[in-house]
């Protein structure tokens, strides 16, 4: 599971370099997210613009990634393809995460911590 990360001030952007997050890679994704976010900034934005498909295992791995950030830190999601957004909407996880259509819109939105 290829993730790349960059940090500016209190915001860390993690970009998923894969076209799917599914059952075959969910556990690896969760572990890689743990490594990337350990002791990092309070706001993490996950760039999903390369991800063309997600299943419920992938959704669960993103939920787990948010949990392992701990309290006081947030995981926002940006660049969701329509099918990815649909999985979040159907499961009502769109009410739990902040979803942004693009990375620019996520970065330009200040978030109250």
């Amino acid at each position: 599971m290829a993730l790349t990360s960059s940090t500016t001030g209190t915001t860390q952007v993690i970009t998923v370099r894969a076209d799917r997050i599914d059952a075959a890679m969910a556990i690896q994704f969760k572990e890689d997210m743990r490594c990337q976010t350990e002791g990092g900034p309070t706001r993490v934005i996950l760039d999903l613009s390369s991800v063309e498909f997600i299943d419920s295992s992938g959704l669960g791995a993103i939920v787990a990634s948010m949990k392992q950030l701990g309290s006081g830190r947030t995981l926002d999601l940006a660049g969701l393809h329509p099918v990815v957004e649909k999985v979040f909407r159907l499961t009502r996880m769109d009410t739990v995460f902040r979803l942004y259509p693009t990375m620019d819109s996520a970065l330009s939105t200040a978030v109250e911590q």
Binding site: S56, V63, M66, K67, V96
Partner: peptide, 10 residues
């Protein structure tokens, strides 16, 4: 938050 149990619902 649940991390699974969405499959049949979907």
């Amino acid at each position: 938050l649940p991390e699974g149990g969405f499959g049949w619902f979907l």
